[in-house]
Design a protein around this nucleic acid. Structure first.
Lengths: 340, 340
DNA sequence: TTGTAGGCGTTATCAA
DNA sequence: TTGATAACGCCTACAA
């Protein structure tokens, strides 16, 4: 409380508030050298720091970007957010973050709070259905909105080509000779899951395989563990899938544990892969084959898009950030461990 | 831009701004039923949303809490932040966070920006030395400051007893019959590392072991991998440590990979443990023995402390959140895999 | 080069 | 129960 105001500085320095403002805000408005020196000394001495609320109000512009994500503690969202934050910091923006916890009510109050702050831009992560937006609604927000990892023709988006990712991964297994694939899905209604699965199915169809069975794992290790157990246990070796594709790394690692606990060897008895290229995936053994989404870059691109629009760019753009399959041990393509 | 203002609502509803304010801000000031109804309809129709900067300015109080952490993409900090965020959301606060990336300059600009926003409270995570605070300095901030995971008699802190944690972990291995421990440290200057190591040393001394060798791993999987390799390779079986204690789970998992790649079995040739109880640690195989820090609760406690002080509580408090050893497979205490 | 004063959108005090 | 109006702290024409 009771922070130093511009008026106090002005009085102490014996100048007007206008002069102090010009100096403190780093404006290029001309100020006498002697005056400047004196004022700067006072600012320093008093520890004056402009009140951002006042500045924003006066300038009609907050340098704030709001980020809405399902769960900040999730590695993927955390990385995307880091990407946003780095780019934001660079451009002089700050990040206001809210987790929705995948709950509709919480998503709504969080969104409301963000809008009251008059965030200059809003970045929405994840394809969940806890936040639903219509073009019209958003128009009334008066804020740039960018979607990451979610389809939405009406808004600017940054995504990886999820369908292609699924397709590439399935094809990789088919090329390795697999005929029985299975898919471990994330949560219901997730865009990422839907697209990846669609890609997997397409590859399977093209390769003449039967449609891969699907089990749901909610994007967690535990869910992946259970889904894999369902897929692998109580089946004869004949009908058991020989390759599991999980919609993210966390579930893939859970699946790996399940296979291990069932006495099945990875990749010999079951091959395995995930998505995200989480840092840890290179360090489990066998090392996890995965699909790199360049999470941080997704965030950086979104921020860049926002900056571009502020510059006058007006079209709705859809950026696609390239992903890449990262072949390690769990798919069985290599036979020996590689040292990172 | 051009968001609806209170004045526009007032005009449209044919009342004064004062009336609109009383309704929109949820004040309990009496307002006629008919008027209220009419105004609420206009608010709804126009999509009016109070400008928070203006509200804050007028009320001299932002409901913002700032969080400064080394790296939000790090699981531990992400979880603590989730804890803060949940408690904050509950209490009607929003969180503004910044990663310092462990760089001094970035920490400074981020801190400055947070202060300009007049955050009602500032929570600083991690024991790194990129942010150094003196009591006097902070007094001039005019903001509550709470430290998490960092010693600092001068400020309110929330910590786990790091020394005890290290001591407990080392004692666990000693009880299991180990005589040659080794420690994988995090980054230089880290409080967590210092305390845990100190606890490990104390237990070793008390148990009559020689001082454990230390290798540094920077808190990453890769660092842990390298540190473990240095500790385990090029040593005869006689002098090789039989148990590795890593200062966090990420390094422990890196160490596990290193052991595997060196053809050493965990826990039979080398036992292993980490700290943090990261979600993944239950799902690597062998499952990782670790020390649970209750990260989210650390954040929640910090937020609670802030709320208490706003209520008039004035003393500098030091909360210690209990931690617990989580015994799984990597330490060798169990012989068979347990299914989670 | 410096200062005066109006405005940014709300809240809150005081009258009516 | 309602309405003017003075803050809140800063920026920025416009004057001097």
């Amino acid at each position: 409380m009771a922070a130093v105001t511009i008026r106090e500085v002005a009085e102490a320095a014996g100048v007007s508030v206008a002069t102090v403002s010009r100096i403190a805000s780093g404006s290029d408005y001309p100020v006498g050298a002697r005056t400047r020196e004196r004022v700067e000394a006072v600012i320093e001495a008093l520890g004056y720091r402009p009140n951002q609320s006042a500045t924003d109000l006066s300038r009609r512009d907050t340098h704030l970007v709001g980020v809405l994500a399902p769960d900040m503690a999730n590695q993927y969202y955390a990385e995307v957010t880091r990407g946003i934050e780095d780019a934001a910091h660079e451009a002089g923006y700050q990040v206001l973050f809210s987790s929705t916890d995948r709950r509709k009510t919480r998503a709504e109050t969080a969104l409301e709070a963000l809008l009251r702050r008059r965030v200059a831009a809003l970045i929405i992560l994840g394809g969940g259905d806890e936040v639903r937006l219509t073009r019209k609604q958003v128009a009334s927000y008066g804020t740039e909105v960018v979607l990451i990892g979610r389809a939405g023709e009406d808004f600017p988006t940054v995504t990886t080509d999820g369908e292609q990712a699924g397709q590439v991964m399935a094809q990789h297994f088919i090329d390795l000779g697999h005929r029985h694939l299975a898919f471990i899905a994330g949560s219901r209604g997730s865009t990422a899951t839907r697209l990846r699965l669609s890609g997997v199915r397409r590859a399977a169809r093209a390769g003449g395989l039967t449609a891969p069975p699907v089990s749901r794992g909610g994007y967690t290790e535990q869910g992946g563990y259970r889904a894999a157990r369902d897929l692998l246990a109580n089946t004869t070796a004949r009908e058991r899938p020989t390759a599991l594709i999980a919609a993210n790394d966390r579930m893939a690692i859970g699946a790996m544990a399940a296979a291990h606990d069932l006495g099945l060897s990875v990749p010999d008895d079951v091959a395995l892969a995930g998505f995200d290229d989480t840092p840890i995936s290179a360090y489990v053994r066998p090392a996890l084959t995965t699909y790199s989404l360049r999470s941080a870059q997704l965030g950086a691109e979104a921020m860049q898009m926002i900056l571009d629009r502020e510059e006058g760019e007006t079209s709705i753009r859809h950026r696609t950030v390239d992903g890449d399959i990262v072949v390690r041990e769990s798919c069985g393509a290599h036979r020996r461990a590689t040292t990172p």
